[in-house]
Design a protein around this nucleic acid. Structure first.
Lengths: 153, 153
DNA sequence: CTAGGAGTTGAAGTTGACTTCAGGTCAAGG
DNA sequence: CCTTGACCTGAAGTCAACTTCAACTCCTAG
């Protein structure tokens, strides 16, 4: 146990993460802690960076499961350095880029759908997200069961 | 009850939404259904459009609560027409645009953070999302508790 | 030395959006 | 008429990511 350990409250203060969440993270194997003689948690300073990593990863959209896997790739024989953290977080970028693309597609489909009487066409890309770009002709299913009579004049 | 009602199974087939979800939506007041003599649900064709609306709204990121509120603005004395649906879905666009902006900001901060040794600076915009652009000087809190000694050489 | 704020545990609760289950009833084709 | 797949209900379960609770114990400032 290093000379300058942190209590759970100190970690909570510094990271802005509730103590209950920190205990939860420990149970989930995302962080770990030594114990005082009396059984209280004593955190190494490194935990601050780990917690920060977890929170940012969550913002990117990773689940705790995925975050745990990512953290497992850190070296366990030494304190992770800048390059270690970089390697992990660099892999988030494609994911973000993909998420942005999905939302942009949705935004654009929404526009064209507003023009087409939103949700009233069998082949509406909005309601048929999976193959929006690919299958604009005839889908495998008549999505809304509309007939030509349903369409606005 | 119109001549051409739909059973719950038919609605499920046409919309791709499970019967259990449809019953749930009815309980939640998102859709409604008449009943047969024997007590089985009989849906008007309009429900297809409503269900489609719900699913697309979910993709946009609305909660069922919000969707219920949106649906409440539809006229209840007549079948909603194209303009009615348009009005509702048009309001989604700013929301989507905002979501996209958030992700783009995150993406860009991630890039610059990779350059700065991700998660190691007190003022890291990544970990301090709320006022990322505003407070690049001195934040109200020393986020990670890092000192100059922690920074990579 | 002691008060009381900080920390401990395991279990249960929360939220959202459903799904699953048990134990029935309905209804349409043969 | 009968079978059988579709449908019914209310209650309970699921999942993720925590929070809350009760009933303690620790530990440090005064």
């Amino acid at each position: 146990m290093p000379d300058e350990w942190l209590t759970i409250g100190a970690v909570a203060d510094r990271t802005g993460v509730a103590t209950s969440a920190l205990r939860f993270y420990e149970r989930e194997g995302l962080i770990d802690a030594a114990r005082s003689e009396g059984g209280q948690r004593r955190f190494h300073r490194d935990v601050l960076r780990r917690v920060a990593f977890v929170r940012v990863a969550q913002r990117v959209g990773l689940t705790l499961d995925e975050i745990r896997s990512a953290l497992a790739q850190l070296p366990d024989n030494r304190t992770p350095n800048q390059r270690d953290w970089q390697r992990l977080s660099r892999s988030w970028r494609p994911r973000l880029v993909e998420q942005i693309a999905v939302l942009e597609r949705l935004r654009d489909e929404l526009s064209s759908c507003i023009g087409c009487g939103c949700l009233s066409l069998r082949t509406c890309a909005l309601y048929n997200p999976d193959d929006a770009a690919a299958t604009l002709g005839v889908g495998p299913r008549y999505l809304l069961g509309d007939t030509a009579a349903d369409l606005p004049t």
